[in-house]
């Protein structure tokens, strides 16, 4: 799903080049949730921004869904990002002039999705992150934890294949931190979205499936954890929620006529997903995830224009 190959990055300050990342190599499988752990200044954000295509590495390649994003131009990258990548910021970064629901809808606004379709989707996601009653409030009326939930819902609305989170709990107290992390864990389990979470706290990192540790720009360890089982009972209710989202989304999708180009794009995207999936499913180490994943695959086709 995501592969980082020989990434080296240097910042230029004045006439000097400061090397921040050195020959980083790693891969993340579809549906995985990994932590990028390291102390402040170790290069985590730099690596994350490179992977999200927000800047270009000095050297190396980054493949997402088998496409080298390093080679993409600004507009192609924007297009790719809006379809495949979600982003959760440390400081939430909500647009203060828009309501909570409008903030969640925003990525779909840039994709010209009809207001009805995106409203339904946004409301379902707000319910999923546990703040359905806050839809019409403004970000300033919410607590930090609630704002981060909005930001999470916003990152999910485009159904990205990977979500990058840079210190998502960095501004929160430890109780709220736990809530947010557990929301992320649940989303990863139910929606099979790949998560890459940057953190400097081992306490946070240890809850992820794998941990990559960065130190002074070097990738020093890659630890693997046993599949998590303790939250398994939660899967049932989450599944129901997911089905609900799909229902509304499909109605909305029907109401919105698609252009030929869009249909073709989505067909192409669907084909790619299919090509990737068998390999991912085989490599997947999380048995309980099997069922929801099949559902995701099944849902992807009718929603994205159907098979020819």
């Amino acid at each position: 799903m995501l592969r980082v190959e020989d990434i080296t990055h240097s910042y230029k300050s004045g006439n000097e080049w400061t090397s921040v990342l050195h020959k980083i190599n790693f891969a993340v499988k579809e549906g995985e949730m990994v932590a990028l752990l390291g102390s402040s200044g170790s290069g985590k954000s730099t690596l994350l921004n490179l992977m999200a295509g927000l800047m270009k590495p000095t050297e190396g390649h980054i493949y997402i869904a088998d496409k080298d994003i390093v080679k993409m131009g600004e507009n192609k990258l924007a297009e790719f990002r809006r379809k495949n990548i979600g982003f959760i910021f440390q400081a939430y970064e909500l647009i203060t002039s828009l309501t909570v629901r409008e903030n969640v809808e925003l990525p779909l606004v840039f994709q010209s999705v009809s207001p009805r379709a995106r409203k339904a989707k946004a409301l379902a996601l707000l319910e999923q992150v546990g703040i359905p009653d806050k839809a019409d409030l403004f970000p300033s009326q919410l607590s930090g934890g609630q704002q981060q939930r909005v930001s999470i819902a916003r990152s999910l609305i485009t159904e990205p294949s990977v979500i990058f989170a840079d210190e998502p709990t960095g501004n929160l107290d430890s109780k709220t931190e736990e809530e947010i992390i557990s929301i992320l864990l649940n989303l990863n389990r139910t929606m099979k979205t790949t998560f890459i979470v940057v953190t400097h706290e081992y306490k946070v990192a240890e809850q992820m499936q794998r941990i990559f540790t960065l130190k002074d720009g070097f990738l020093i360890t890659e630890s693997q954890r046993e599949p998590q089982v303790q939250t398994e009972p939660q899967i049932e209710p989450q599944l129901e929620l997911k089905t609900e989202v799909q229902g509304e989304e499909q109605i909305a999708e029907e109401a919105e006529p698609q252009t030929m180009v869009e249909v073709e794009e989505q067909l192409a995207a669907g084909a790619e997903q299919e090509a990737v999936e068998p390999q991912t499913a085989a490599a997947d180490e999380d048995p309980p995830a099997e069922e929801p994943e099949h559902q995701t695959a099944a849902e992807a086709d009718p929603a994205e224009g159907g098979k020819p």
């Binding site: 927000l54 600004e74 924007a78 990002r81 982003f87 970064e93 990525p107 840039f110």
Partner: peptide, 16 residues
């Protein structure tokens, strides 16, 4: 600037 940056991260392109 900051808001514009966020919108770009959220998928807005230059034209938009």
């Amino acid at each position: 600037r900051r808001q514009i940056g966020i919108m770009k991260v959220l998928g807005a392109n230059m034209g938009q």
